[in-house]
Design a protein around this nucleic acid. Structure first.
Lengths: 271, 271
DNA sequence: CCCCATGTTAGTGTCGACACTGTGCGTCGG
DNA sequence: CCGACGCACAGTGTCGACACTAACATGGGG
């Protein structure tokens, strides 16, 4: 409540048992997903990324209060960069800011979830089509690598690792499709439901099915079978959506790990 | 240069010969396209909308300097709301803000234009599909009304009026499709190239062709022929894109009317 | 004459302050 | 005992100020 002062240097920022390397990779993924790299000012980026990860990883639940003064204190900055970060996240749909009220973590209702998933299905189909038709050999190799990471994580039954590997895989595919607009649109949609994507993978059997689908997808890429790849992509998304539907998902039932661990103070860092 | 004070009340804000009613309607369209209504604070909205319209209507050319202190002076506010407005527009792709440099009006290069148009073609096809399949009679009537406005404008050879009527038509269709996510995605993409959409309609013969296509599209809607409506939508966009390509469009060749007329001072208004 | 260093200036990013508004609580009247 | 009213607090939106940086102009050296 008082002035933050020098924060405890590295308070198990996310999962205690997470290699710094993996943590860094995930940060970068989030950063790219939110296009934070374009904006140079590190303050805003750091703050936005921290909040975004909090939301995605379930540390910050839908409806959670995000008042700028608290956050500013936490980060040891003024409210200005915090407000910018919140605006940014609002545009991405992660945060809602009612008129003169406190910003809060967006509440996903099933309806928009369905919309987002369906739209993502279409867009991913477009991506798949292009990847299958235009991917160069070394790009296919990269995709195989990403798939390998997924295999690896699945073998270890490491949900988090699998989840992020999956995100990276799609990120790669979108990149290979070589259409920045499409990629950004997809990233933006995807970011909104990242939390749910994580959740859906946690449902029993989903990880295995997902892995299988992605294996097949890569094969379709390698065979240059665009229509198949597109159909598979649609199916992957639809399966995830169906799983969510059947799980009786509501905004409350997402996995919660509610240590609201301390964010990194940016006072001296990031120079 | 000095404090703004009470600005000359209504300095031919856009086109001198434009009914206040039409002006208001266009403002509202822009506002909705940019989802400014969600954000209540009128300062930011007013500023963002003014800049956006400036860009769309060609008053502010790509590359045009948008430094916050000038704008703040113009609007008689501090820089804070201006900066917010600029951030907002940056997210919409209308403005670019290099790290520590001045923000400027985004430069469209042909590549992203192609990407945006192609993506829009796909999304509009989705919209068309749903409209054709699900539109209720009174919604069809509304679409017919919007089409009538286009007919009317075309008959008067009023490019601006036709352009905005067209925007309104698509807005309506997206609304009827009843998919908020899709609509927003489409709006966001559309906003980026509004300037170009205007330009492409100004090319010889384009307005007539566009009108014809839209007439046919509405008929497809009425006949409930989804696939046809989708195909027509794609065609409409592709034709526009093709026209732009053939016009040898480059960032310079957009129609310019470079009176940088005074924005409305918001000092006392908007209470 | 051109190129590089230096000083100047304009503009950004950030801060702390202030007024206004929404929220929750206590109080008062029924 | 319950509900309306009003008050105090919390938090937002906005402002003006400040340090720092990029761009530009100026002058000196090659």
């Amino acid at each position: 409540m008082t002035a933050a002062g020098p924060e405890p240097s590295d308070p198990g920022r996310t999962d205690a048992r997470l290699s710094p390397e993996a943590d860094r990779v995930r940060s970068e993924l989030v950063t790219r997903l939110l296009r934070l790299d374009e904006r140079s000012d590190s303050l805003v980026s750091v703050i936005a990324e921290w909040i975004a990860r909090g939301i995605i990883e379930g540390r910050l639940q839908p409806g959670h209060d995000l008042n700028s003064v608290d956050l500013a204190e936490r980060f040891g900055t003024s409210r200005t960069p915090v407000r910018e970060a919140l605006m940014l996240l609002e545009k991405e749909g992660l945060v809602e800011t009612p008129p003169r009220r406190r910003p809060q973590v967006s509440t996903l209702d099933l309806r928009v979830v369905e919309e987002v998933y369906q739209l993502r299905a279409e867009l991913l189909a477009l991506v798949a089509l292009r990847v299958a038709e235009r991917a160069r050999p070394e790009q296919l190799a990269q995709l195989r690598e990403d798939l390998a990471a997924m295999e690896d994580a699945a073998a270890r039954r490491d949900l988090d690792a699998y989840f992020w590997a999956n995100v990276a895989f799609h990120e790669r595919a979108a990149h290979v499709a070589d259409d920045l607009t499409l990629k950004r649109t997809l990233d933006s949609l995807g970011a909104r439901v990242l939390q749910l994507r994580h959740f859906s993978l946690s449902l029993p059997g989903r990880m295995e099915l997902s892995l299988e689908d992605h294996r097949r997808l890569v094969r379709a890429y390698e065979e240059g079978d665009g229509p198949l790849a597109a159909a598979l992509s649609r199916s992957i998304i639809n399966a995830a959506l169906q799983a969510i539907r059947e799980s009786g998902w509501t905004k409350g039932s997402v996995d919660r790990r509610d240590d609201a661990s301390q964010p990194p103070a940016v006072t001296e860092s990031s120079k």
